[in-house]
Design a binder for these strands. Structure first.
Lengths: 226, 226
DNA sequence: TATTACATGTCGACC
DNA sequence: GGTCGACGTGTAATA
């Protein structure tokens, strides 16, 4: 990884146009070719960048008082131009390839907990199948309610308006299968946006906000005693 | 900005759990306190990070063979732990506050241009209101067509299938207001995905692909002469 | 502060 | 290569 701290101006032409006036920035060039321009604030997104694959050309500055110019181009026709006036630091240190990041997410776990006990959502609810396949994607949970309804459950960490649409698409798809009639839909999330609730209301879908920690605790009651 | 290249292991506990095994990484500490852990590949997202505001505590490693431990915590209860075994580089260079990034060509600009002259979408189209409020979000452009239709315009930089859904939501919502009848919908973008066009077709929505540069040029014809 | 929609989103999975 | 869904999404603007 090459790290350069320099007084520079940056231009990007591609999906949009962006210009960064002259100032001191960090230029980061990764081993895979990715170039990032960072300021000393604003986590964690760089001001400008160019992802791999790309080509970086470094040449003497074309104008007076310009030390050098970096031109980074990619096959999509995007272009990043960095005009350097002064270099304060320039180091190149190989990092090598490190082992990957190991994640333990909440979303999948939430679905798992609900599959284990759907009655959290509605009394008497019984799981038919998890990740029930349809030709427009898998339904998170397919359940049977006490009143005989088939219930389509869409699980999200955060329930936004697009999650309501997703639920609607599954309902529309499963509606075609008369064996599943009558059909109902539920949006489940730790937090549901007001607009998503309005849309659920309008379309006749139910929604449930669940507390992840509480839910996890409910399945491990022995651990909550002391 | 402080830049440290070190052999280290990283743990994150917060919205999820993540562990990064021992390897050489770049640690970036910005003036506002943001901490990022970068590998030598992968644009531009860090492997781990902690956004400001936060507190960074640096202390001697608690175990044998451990040089030091950084603990970064924030008010939300998230925690980033960096165990450092070897430091290959450690520099601290003030960058100062630079001028901001200037962007051109984002959705807002496109919307602005279209609001200024809706006839590029359809002859005779007149703007009623920009950002017309509904309880499921603002309609980008609400227009009146020559044939008396009210036209709902959804503007995107890139038209994807979710943009068609968004247009559909607004149409469904405004359909409830008989004063706006009859109603039509148009999806506008610089580029529209094939599937989005298919969905528009199926639902009876119109779509228009516009050239941003051309559009901008059309409003400034005198500037394009030479 | 909370709510919302945009983002040069990025990234992975699947087709 | 395109589409789709998730992300510790981040980020800015707005109410």
């Amino acid at each position: 990884m090459r790290l350069v701290i320099a007084r520079c101006a940056v231009d990007y032409q591609g999906r949009l146009s962006a210009h960064l006036p002259l100032a001191v920035r960090l230029l980061m060039v990764k081993a895979d070719g990715c170039v990032c321009v960072h300021a000393d604030s604003g986590a964690y997104k760089p001001l400008n960048w160019m992802t791999a694959p790309n080509v970086l050309v470094e040449e003497p500055g074309p104008a007076e008082g310009l030390l050098s110019r970096w031109t980074v181009t990619n096959p999509k026709g995007e272009r990043l131009t960095i005009d350097i006036e002064e270099v304060l630091l320039d180091v190149d240190e190989p990092l090598g390839i490190g082992p990957g990041l190991v994640k333990d997410g909440v979303e999948a776990h939430l679905q798992e907990l609900l599959a284990g006990d759907p009655t959290v959502l509605e009394a008497g609810l019984v799981l038919i199948r998890r990740e029930h396949a349809t030709d427009i994607g898998p339904v998170d949970l397919l359940c049977r309610a006490a009143d005989g309804h088939t219930v389509v459950v869409e699980v999200k960490r955060r329930g936004d308006i697009d999650g309501v649409d997703q639920l609607g698409r599954y309902l529309g798809r499963l509606q075609l299968d008369s064996r599943l009639h009558p059909l109902r839909g539920v949006l489940v999330a730790q937090q549901i946006a007001p607009q998503a609730k309005v849309l659920c209301q309008a379309r006749g879908y139910a929604w449930v906000e669940v507390d992840y920690d509480l839910l996890r605790g409910a399945r491990l009651p022995d651990l909550t005693l002391f």
